[in-house]
Computed example of a mutant assay.
Amino acid sequence: MSQHHEKVLERIRLGLVYTETEAAFQAPQRRTEEIFEYNHTPPGDPGRRRALLEAILGSVGERTVLLPPFHAGFGSNVHLGDDFFGNVNLTFVDDVEIRIGHGVMIAPSVTLTTTGHPVHPSRRADFGRFSEPIVIEDKVWIGSNAVVLPGVRIGYGSVIGAGSVVSHDIPAMTVAVGTPCRVLREITEEDLKTRTAEG
């Protein structure tokens, strides 16, 4: 790798603005063709789907379900833990890493975007952008149409309400909702009693 490429990668790592031209050397890491094939693989061929998922993603755990179609800028920067469930129209804007733990459930039409753009239009020339990794810890549930923005960490066991825009870290074992997403309450033992035959 050239010194120029190393300098660009360091700027990306620091969350500084970089351009499409500067990052073009990363194009071979994109899994565009494999994602297209995955999204068009018949549901009756789970073996082929699994093989494609292993070829697309940076890492993938056991018993993973990712319903097509899904979308990713790279795919290779996404890491999924065991027992992951991703519903239809999940979008990964994975210019840098998205790390998802074990037992995570994601509802339809959720966007996880590691990348944003500068506010001033002159800094968006050549698709100027910045990227920060996303971390979703174990046992998180993200509701439909939620958007998780660059640099966010969602803590263990938390629930993100449908339609939320998550722009800041969410602590473990909380319910968080809204635009911008805010903690509504903690998850407690009382939640074990809801929607049961005895409850």
Results as ranks from 00 to 15, higher is better:
124 R>V: 11
138 D>H: 01
109 S>V: 08
129 R>E: 10
139 K>G: 01
141 W>N: 05
146 A>S: 12
144 S>W: 00
114 T>F: 09
144 S>V: 03
156 Y>K: 00
128 G>F: 05
131 S>L: 14
160 I>H: 05
142 I>N: 00
117 H>C: 13
136 I>Q: 04
145 N>P: 09
155 G>T: 03
118 P>R: 13
122 S>V: 14
139 K>F: 00
111 T>D: 09
140 V>M: 01
151 G>T: 14
154 I>H: 04
143 G>R: 03
109 S>N: 15
133 P>R: 05
161 G>E: 05
126 D>L: 06
133 P>A: 06
152 V>W: 04
156 Y>H: 07
140 V>I: 04
111 T>R: 09
148 V>D: 00
119 V>I: 15
153 R>C: 07
137 E>T: 00
154 I>P: 06
151 G>Q: 08
127 F>S: 10
134 I>T: 11
120 H>A: 15
144 S>E: 03
144 S>H: 03
125 A>Q: 10
111 T>V: 14
161 G>D: 03
114 T>M: 12
126 D>G: 06
122 S>D: 13
141 W>G: 08
160 I>P: 14
151 G>F: 05
108 P>Q: 11
136 I>K: 02
118 P>E: 10
155 G>H: 03
152 V>K: 03
158 S>I: 02
152 V>G: 05
136 I>D: 06
126 D>Y: 05
134 I>L: 04
115 T>N: 10
137 E>S: 02
158 S>Y: 01
111 T>L: 09
110 V>D: 04
123 R>E: 15
134 I>K: 02
150 P>E: 06
132 E>W: 09
134 I>M: 03
152 V>L: 06
131 S>Q: 10
132 E>R: 15
126 D>N: 08
122 S>R: 10
117 H>M: 11
154 I>T: 08
161 G>H: 02
137 E>G: 02
161 G>I: 03
117 H>Y: 15
126 D>H: 08
107 A>R: 12
115 T>H: 12
109 S>C: 14
157 G>E: 01
111 T>Q: 10
120 H>F: 13
119 V>W: 14
148 V>S: 01
142 I>Q: 00
118 P>H: 13
147 V>H: 02
124 R>T: 10
114 T>D: 10
108 P>T: 13
145 N>R: 05
109 S>H: 14
130 F>N: 06
147 V>E: 01
130 F>H: 09
123 R>Q: 13
157 G>Q: 02
157 G>Y: 01
147 V>I: 15
127 F>N: 09
123 R>V: 11
112 L>G: 09
159 V>F: 00
156 Y>N: 03
153 R>L: 02
111 T>W: 06
116 G>D: 15
122 S>Q: 11
133 P>T: 08
136 I>N: 05
152 V>E: 06
114 T>H: 12
113 T>C: 08
131 S>M: 06
161 G>L: 02
107 A>D: 10
123 R>W: 12
120 H>Q: 14
110 V>P: 11
133 P>W: 08
125 A>R: 12
121 P>I: 15
146 A>G: 09
139 K>T: 00
155 G>I: 03
111 T>H: 08
146 A>Q: 06
124 R>D: 07
117 H>T: 12
151 G>V: 13
155 G>Q: 04
130 F>M: 09
129 R>N: 12
116 G>M: 14
140 V>N: 00
127 F>V: 13
159 V>S: 01
128 G>W: 05
129 R>I: 07
153 R>V: 08
122 S>C: 11
110 V>L: 08
108 P>V: 14
